[in-house]
Design a protein around this nucleic acid. Structure first.
Lengths: 219, 219
DNA sequence: TCTGGTTTGTTCGCACGTTCACAAAGTGCT
DNA sequence: AGCACTTTGTGAACGTGCGAACAAACCAGA
């Protein structure tokens, strides 16, 4: 952060706020689809499941897009948040590992509708290379570098078994991918300039189990 | 929290720590499988991808399970964490919505190995009721109440489309489920005593996109 | 134009989470 | 036993995030 960014929206947005922006965006899309033109911070906060003060503070990091005494213009705010997140542009994505989870991800409509385009499905297993999933055919993992270079892929999704995940990550990084979404239950080691986000299904269940156990003990 | 809990491990564990305990547990299992009997906080922290000071502070909430000058006994610590989380006991789970994601979840081996037992797969679509997924047959959603009562289900997983999620949640709550893992992209409204954890695949991608966009702008 | 009502944007105090740094407590060698 | 070395557990400083409260800004009606 030594070099001062000078582009239009170069304010420093807290990580906690960034994580909530997609939630606000989703709520705004729902409101827009319902024909709502204007909403207050209170309404939007309720729809997003947060406190209205927190919502206003979050939005204030992006700029002053509301009107006092009135509220926010739904479509305008929606566009501003989408632009800030970056989902107004097209993001080519590769998915590696076409097991059950890979299938689910490839078919997930929530990706395409938010600017993410699955350009390739890769798997190391030759038996899968004949398959066509969600209109994209499965290709050998060794095609990774070529696809990344040709399609300008910046985001990779790992849906392989745990043992393969680190190797896949290494290859992705070497191919130039700097953002990885990891579904494999391992801690990936990557260079500092690579972003990794981890989604672990069993960890979420374990957190629920902890609270459930405490509820049971408290009776 | 008015009544003071008096059971053995009634210390107040911070939420951030609870979220990391499953990560430590996984690292310990890996170490144990590799034949390691003892490890230092530094080693375990590296394996879990966190700072060693944070790890020690986290573990200190559970008790003093280490030995100064030596480190932690892998199997002993593993058991203590598992007990604290609650995965030493059996947790019956129901999954509602057997689409692509529901399939993936039903087949996920990480559940069973951590004390979670999928006792039922439910779907509203009659066409699916003939299927058998992961050794469990798909049953009508209306069987929910009966299954919850008979099997003592405490945790429910929602893998339905967004429009159906709130209805499913309502039925789950009415049936007595107090912990819900929600994969549908909606904010669920539930009573205060019900825990909901949300996993949203597209939100994770959007967060990555935000950072990726900033990297690109900073060049 | 002025007044009353509404809603945003922001300031402030507080609680939570993270990291540093070190005393306390152990091991092993002489 | 005593000493050097290792590692845990924790107190204290620091930074971040949250929520309440309020002033600034806007609309509407007279």
């Amino acid at each position: 952060m030594t070099a001062k960014a000078s582009s239009d929206s170069a304010r420093e947005i807290p990580e906690a706020t960034v994580a909530r922006l997609p939630v606000y965006l989703r709520a705004l899309v729902t409101l827009s689809d319902a024909g709502t033109e204007t909403c207050s911070s209170e309404e939007l906060a309720t729809a997003a499941g947060v406190n209205s003060a927190k919502l206003r503070k979050d939005l204030s990091y992006l700029g002053s897009y509301g009107t006092r005494g009135v509220g926010y213009d739904v479509d305008y705010l929606r566009y501003q948040i989408a632009r800030e997140i970056g989902v107004t542009q097209d993001w080519p994505v590769v998915i590696v590992g076409i097991g059950n989870l890979g299938h689910a991800l490839a078919n997930y409509s929530g990706f395409r509708s938010r600017g993410f385009r699955v350009v390739a499905l890769l798997d190391a297993d030759p038996e899968r290379h004949q398959e066509v999933v969600a209109g994209v055919d499965v290709r050998p993992f060794d095609d990774l570098e070529q696809i990344v270079a040709e399609q300008g892929v910046a985001i990779g999704v790992i849906a392989t078994p745990a043992v393969a995940a680190q190797d896949v990550a290494n290859r992705m990084v070497a191919a130039g991918i700097r953002s990885i979404l990891n579904f494999a239950p391992v801690v990936l080691a990557v260079p500092d300039d690579v972003d990794v986000r981890k989604v672990d299904l069993s960890i979420e269940l374990q957190i629920l189990a902890y609270h459930e156990q405490r509820k049971a003990n408290a009776s």
